[in-house]
Every structure is written in C-alpha cells, then in structure tokens.
C-alpha cells in the first residue's frame, strides 16, 4: 500500500466534560473515497474539523500528507479542500462571484467556469446565494471545496436535507470528482450513502471507531445468517406458515419463521445462508407457490447493530433508503 495521505491516530477532543471524540484512528490512501459514518453526535464533524486544523485537539495526532495539521494548519490549506457542515456565504453574493473570489485565494486554482459546468451550476451562475435551492447550495459548497485544485477534499454531510433525486445526483458527482484523482473524505450519517460511495470506511459511535473496512467486507464479516421474505396469496398464508414452522423444527438451516407485521400474507424466514435451499423443496412438497420471494440483503445497519448492540438511528428520517434487494426468484405469478 502507498503511504497514507491522511493519518489520524488516537485523536481525542473534549468540550468541557463532554467527550466528543474519545479515541479515533484511521488512515486514508491516495485516491480513495473514505467514509466516516456514524449517528448524529458521534463525533464525525469534530474529527474532520480537527483534522483540517480548524479545531484544537486534546490528544493524538492528525496528519495530512505527512504534515501535522495541529501544528501547521496553514500548511495544508492549498492541498485540502473543505466543505463544512455548517457554513454559508453572503446572501447576496452570486455563484460565479463566490467561485471567482475563492479561486483567487489559491496558488493553482481550478477553472471556475469548468467547475460550474461540472456541477451543473452554469445556468445558475448569476443567481444570489440566498435564492439557491438546497441542492444548488450543496453543489456550490462542493465547488468551493474543489476550487483550489485540492489533493484531498473533506465533504461533511453533503447530502443532508436533499431530496432523494438530488442526493443521487450528488453521489454521481462525488464519483466524478474522485475520477479526477482527488482523495475524498466523506462524512455522512446515511448508511446507504456510505455503502454506495465509499471504498473503505470507519464507523464511529460515541467518539470511538467501532468498525473499519470496505462496506462489503464489513457486511460479509457478519454472522452469516440470512432472511427470506415470502409472499403468499391470502388463502395460502396460514398453511404456508404451518408448513414452514414444521420445517424450522426439523431443518437446522431454518431458524425462525415469523408473520410480517405490516403486510398480511408475508412470511419472514431466518436461517443460515442456505435457508433458501431448504425452503424450496418444502414448499414444492406442499404445493405452495409464493407470489414473491425476496432475500433481505445485509447492510451496514446490521454491521452497526452487531458492533454496538444498538439499532442504527439518526435523528433525521432516512425513510427512502431501501435496505433489501428484490430479485433472486420471481415467484409463480399464476
């Protein structure tokens, strides 16, 4: 592996009695999209703002390209672009003015017009900041983080408050930025965002790293039980449950059978990864044809649960994040 471009080791930061970051360490490789994922108040923003040299650490070291940013915060300003979670601009400055203004601060700035085009801001270039939509403000914020042609960009909660479509567009954009060679440190509390974008990530909870790895690696490392949801015609549902409960008693691959609480006719079966193999012959034997079969994929949410013993919850509703993938089998649609 190359030498890490960002190194955080045993970072600690307190506000009075409140420990915001207890002990956080991680290293980011050049060219990665590296995620810092965690629930509200986990200490993500504190971590990256200390890393950027914007807050003073109480312990540990933070380095960007080998430079101690606590000691020499000014030395990384030209290579580190930062999109702050809470920072805005003058209400009356236009998009283009803001980009040109910030471009002037850097030694080798990017071309503001190119960035405007890349972030789909060209049509809004002469609009004032206060008149921009949430998504446009976020895109401008990303543009400002990139205007200095940084090697590393810190993006803190860049899709919070965006609608699902705008969020997906922003994700594509982050991938486009990475394709230009920028290393990205992505702070988020959206599991789906981290899973979709990050090459590697740390999960932070209450100021500590609880897990580190690739999204898939973390998910694969979980106990490998799996869940299958079967939907039956209403008439069949009761009989199906009886058959499957018998199966659960007799077959070690099948652990539990539950009726779905919200949708009538759905039966939830949990077992080993081979649970599906056990189900199919049993259903065939009883001539029960499900209308639909879904395997519920494991997600980072399960990783969080496994490492903290708590369900992952964020203050803001993330209702649109689907956690299960339909497919695998299309049941007989008679």
């Amino acid at each position: 592996m190359a030498k890490p471009i960002v190194e955080v080791s045993h970072l600690r930061k307190t506000y009075g009695d409140k420990v915001a970051v207890d002990d956080v360490s991680f290293a980011v490789q050049p060219g990665e999209i590296f995620g810092i994922l965690g629930p509200n108040g986990a200490g993500k923003t504190t971590t990256v703002e200390t890393l950027a040299g914007l807050r003073t650490a109480d312990g540990g070291t933070v380095r960007v390209r080998g430079i101690d940013t606590q000691r020499h915060p000014g030395a990384v300003r030209d290579i580190l672009g930062v999109q702050l979670q809470e920072a805005a601009l003058h209400d009356k400055i236009t998009v283009r003015e803001a980009l040109n203004l910030f471009a002037g601060f850097y030694a080798n700035p990017a071309d503001p017009e190119e960035l405007l085009a890349m972030l789909d801001l060209t049509p809004h270039a002469d609009r004032r900041f206060a008149k921009l939509s949430g998504g446009q403000k976020q895109r401008l914020s990303i543009a400002l983080a990139l205007i200095g042609n940084p090697e590393i960009a810190i993006l803190d909660e860049l899709t919070t408050g965006l609608d699902p479509q705008a969020r997906r567009n922003t994700w594509e954009l982050v991938e486009r930025v990475r394709a230009t060679g920028v290393t990205i440190l992505l702070v988020t509390h959206f599991m789906e965002e981290a899973e979709r974008l990050c090459d590697r990530l740390v999960i932070i909870d209450a100021g500590n790293v609880v897990a580190e790895g690739t999204p898939q690696g973390l998910i694969d490392a979980l106990d490998d039980d799996s869940t299958v949801v079967l939907r039956f015609a209403p008439d069949d549902a009761g009989r199906a449950r009886d058959v499957l409960e018998q199966l659960a008693d007799s077959d070690p691959e099948v652990a539990r059978v539950d009726l779905a609480e919200t949708s009538p006719g759905e039966v939830v079966v949990t077992g080993t990864r081979r649970v599906l193999f056990a189900l199919v012959p049993a259903l065939a034997g009883a001539d029960l044809v499900p209308d639909d079969v879904r395997t519920v994929a494991r997600s980072l949410e399960d990783v969080f649960l496994a490492h903290t013993g708590r369900a992952y919850s964020t203050g803001t509703g993330d209702a649109d994040a689907p956690t299960d993938t339909t497919l695998v089998l299309e049941g007989g649609r008679s």
């Binding site: 506000y15 009075g16 009695d17 409140k18 703002e49 040299g53 914007l54 807050r55 003073t56 915060p73 000014g74 030395a75 300003r77 040109n100 203004l101 471009a103 002037g104 601060f105 850097y106 030694a107």
Partner: peptide, 24 residues
Amino acid sequence: TATATATPTRVRPSGTGWRGFGRL
C-alpha cells in the same frame, strides 16, 4: 450543557497569505 458552552469551539484563523485580497 453549561460546561460545553463554557469552552467555545476554537476555530483558528490559520490562513497564510493575502493572495486574492484585491478581489476579496
């Protein structure tokens, strides 16, 4: 909490230069 507000976030002004001051 009271103790938390007693220690305000220190955001340190750390920029190094005056490049772009005219435009600013």
